[in-house]
Amino acid sequence: MKAERPSDDKRWRLVDATMRRHGHEPNCLIEALHTVQESFGYLEKDALRYVALSLRVPLSKVYGVATFYHFFSMKPQGKHTCVVCMGTACYIKGAQNLLDSVRSRMVVEPGDTTSDGQLSLLTARCVGSCGLAPAVVIDNKVLGNVTESRLSETLGRSVEHEL
């Protein structure tokens, strides 16, 4: 069985490059999935099938790996992401309240994306910014010592003004 690229999308070349760099060894599965997610934003079934066939890894094994690691997402992300850190230091400093406030303000549950596809709300185990707890990461930018009002202001700036 020869793996064929699921589409003409140029991003498959990036995925191929990663697999080639590792000599298409089955053990580079996780590295390949990282590249897929980086390139496409999430792991689509077609992508999983393509990687499975290219690396000669059973389909169920690929699916098992993709769903084992929480860093991988099987759903497309919104245009913006808001990651509320739920690490110990952040939790002790009120991260739960921050999460609840985004949840009710943006009408979205953790792990989901708003119905207009603008914002994905996520939680993190710890983003390692404990010195600045509580921390929130908006579009890959870490905000420290976050308060509810500051968070809603920032979210308003980066997300809502585009509506």
């Binding site: 053990n27 996780i30 590295e31 990282h34 098992g64 790996v65 690691y69 929480h70 860093f71």
Partner: peptide, 22 residues
């Protein structure tokens, strides 16, 4: 690259992960 699994701090799990497994 790890992919978000605390259990991979355990050495046999870490090895499995480097080998591309769960």
């Amino acid at each position: 690259l790890g992919a978000g699994a605390f259990v991979c701090g355990e050495e046999t799990a870490l090895i499995a992960s480097i080998e591309g497994k769960r």
